[in-house]
Each structure stands twice: as C-alpha cells, then as structure tokens.
C-alpha cells in the first residue's frame, strides 16, 4: 500500500503554474530523493502534503487519508527554516512534542541531545543557529512517523553538520516508514537514497527509479546525471 498518493495535482500562484498534473505514488519503507532545480515546485509539493498549502485542484492521500489533522499526526516535517519559539527551553520543546505527537520517542530525543552535548535546560535563543537546526532535526527524527518530509535538510549547513544529519537519518531509519528528502545538493545525499525522482519545472517528472541502478545503467553518479539532464534548464 502506498504511503503517499498525488492525483492530478495542480498548483497555481495567480497566473504562475507551479505544479501541473502531477501524479505520484510513493511506497512505504523507502528513502526517496525529490531532486530538481530551484523553483521547480519541490517545496510546494511538500507543503501541500503537510497541509500548509492547498492544491488548486487534485487530491493528496497519505496512508489512505485526506490531508488534515489525522495525516499531520503521522507525518514528521522538517522545513527549510527553523520554526522554534526562541523563548522556550529545549526541555519545554520536548514536552511540547510529547504532548501533541503520540509517536514521539522522548528517550531517543534525549539521547540524541546528549550525543551532541546540548543541555536540555538551555534556552533556544542561547544556542547557535546551527545548533538550533540540529535540535529541530532531532525533534523531527525522534518521532516514529510513517512519513518523514525533509525539505532541504542540508542546504546552508557546514560539511560536518551535513554528515551528522545524514547519519541521523540513517540511524533513525525505520524500514516501515518512508523518508522523502528534497534537495539540490545531490552529491552528499545520493548514497542514502533508495529511489530518486528528477523534478522539472511545473513539477514534471523527468526521470525516476532506483538510485543505485543508475550507476550501472549510465555509468554515472546521480549528481553527474542530474547536471546532464538539467543542463539547459533555466
């Protein structure tokens, strides 16, 4: 059974058509890369799955349910920006997540904080930007969600932190859950992907398949293939 289904999805911003007739069916238990140039609609699609944006037309089904509070309960979303309330302490944030999300694993979150030597009693505003981003990642990955949506998790992050983020994703990997990662930094991410989708403008699915088979088929990495495919895309 697919964890995510999009049927005839359209999204317009005024006259601008961002997504055009998108049809996607995502199975459970895979790490999938949603790869495409900036502005092709990756973030828009992710936001629509979270309920932050409403499609102009078409349907989205998560685990057989329409978008709403029930789907939010099984989706763990990591946006590009930090959504943390700076006045809170880290422990307050953990309590908050425990309160609203039944699938939040408190012990796992505490352990990850410990590994990074982040004091749970510290206020978020006293932490550096990079540390706050890591706290946010910990909150997202400490949930036992069915669908993880990571929107550009490693953009604007230093290489060491990038490694940490990828390791965290691998470490918290749940074979029954699906992880969808959007990024334009393909080189770092391709080794952890099961499948990939190349998204062109208008949300057009240019190419897709198993990430590892690409190397056998084309003799190239995903990164190299991407550069080729999107060479003439403005």
């Amino acid at each position: 059974m697919s964890i995510l289904e999009c049927r005839s999805l359209y999204k317009n911003y005024g006259n601008k058509r961002v997504l055009e007739n998108m049809n996607i069916s995502v199975p459970a238990g895979k790490i999938i890369g949603l790869l495409g140039p900036n502005g092709c609609g990756k973030s828009t699609l992710i936001k629509m799955i979270c309920g932050l944006l409403v499609p102009s037309s078409g349907e989205i089904w998560v685990d057989g349910m329409p978008i709403g509070p029930q789907t939010n309960g099984i989706i763990s979303y990591l946006p590009e920006r930090t959504y943390l309330s700076n006045g809170m302490k880290v422990i307050d944030l953990i309590d908050y997540f425990c309160d609203f999300y039944r699938d939040f694993d408190r012990k796992r979150a505490m352990k990850m904080l410990q590994d990074l030597m982040i004091d749970p009693a510290s206020r978020l505003r006293t932490l550096s930007k990079g540390t706050r981003e890591k706290v946010q990642l910990i909150m997202v990955m400490a949930r036992n969600a069915k669908l993880y949506l990571l929107d550009e998790p490693i953009a604007g992050v230093d290489p060491a932190s990038r490694d940490y983020i990828l390791q965290t994703i691998l470490q918290n990997y749940n074979p029954e859950a699906t992880v969808i990662i959007t990024t334009h930094l393909i080189h770092d991410i391709e080794r952890i992907l099961d499948e990939f989708v190349f998204l062109g403008f208008g949300g057009e699915i240019v190419m897709g398949g198993n990430a590892d088979d690409i190397r056998g088929q084309y003799g190239k990495t995903l990164d190299e293939l991407f550069r080729e495919v999107f060479k003439y895309v403005q």
């Binding site: 390791q167 691998l170 990997y173 080794r191």
Partner: peptide, 17 residues
C-alpha cells in the same frame, strides 16, 4: 545490516542488496 549500513553510510537497502 543496519550497523554495516551505518558504518558505510549507505542506505540499508543498498547494504542488504
């Protein structure tokens, strides 16, 4: 598998394969 996948830093399904 999971441990090897973590050490190699690859997708567990790839390691499984």
């Amino acid at each position: 598998v999971r441990q090897l996948a973590y050490i190699a830093a690859v997708n567990p399904n790839t390691m499984q394969r």
